[in-house]
Amino acid sequence: MVSAMEIYMLLPKTNCKKCGVATCMAFAVGLLGRQKKVDECTPLIEEKKYEAKLKKLREVMAPIEKASETGLIIHPEKCFGCGNCVVACPVNVAAEPTRTAVGLGPEGEKVILRVEDGVVVVNNLKECKRFGPSGTLCNACTATCPSKAIEFV
């Protein structure tokens, strides 16, 4: 995953404040945390000399922007389909105490994570413990992944 410093290197580094924050570094942190959008850096969009930087920035930001509201990103190409996250997720455990909680594949629609066609897929993300203003920093799915196929940004 890209770091705030790597994002900063792709910004104008002029601290012009047009985006509403004091420094380009603060804006970079905002982008990473998804409170800010690339388009809010108007110089980068408008000035021709930043064209290459803008292109690169959009590339590195693509996975972050794709992240769901909880910041969950899945890399199916890395996934083993082992189901560790499916069985570890506290929401899944509560949803199917006689299936998912004891290691079997889920049957119902209430679970967040399930394995389809050999890789993990996400549903019902609003049920994720990280969702919303009162979200917790649950990391059951990332901590149990053998291949870093799930991450939070």
């Binding site: 996934c79 083993f80 389909g81 082992c82 189901g83 079997l104 594949g105 399930r114 394995v115 389809e116 066609d117 050999g118 890789v119």
Partner: peptide, 21 residues
Amino acid sequence: IVASFENGSLKHAKNLCRKGH
């Protein structure tokens, strides 16, 4: 494992790991 087949291929599978798939 829940699997469905169609026209000589695996159409959809639930709970198969990557290896099983």
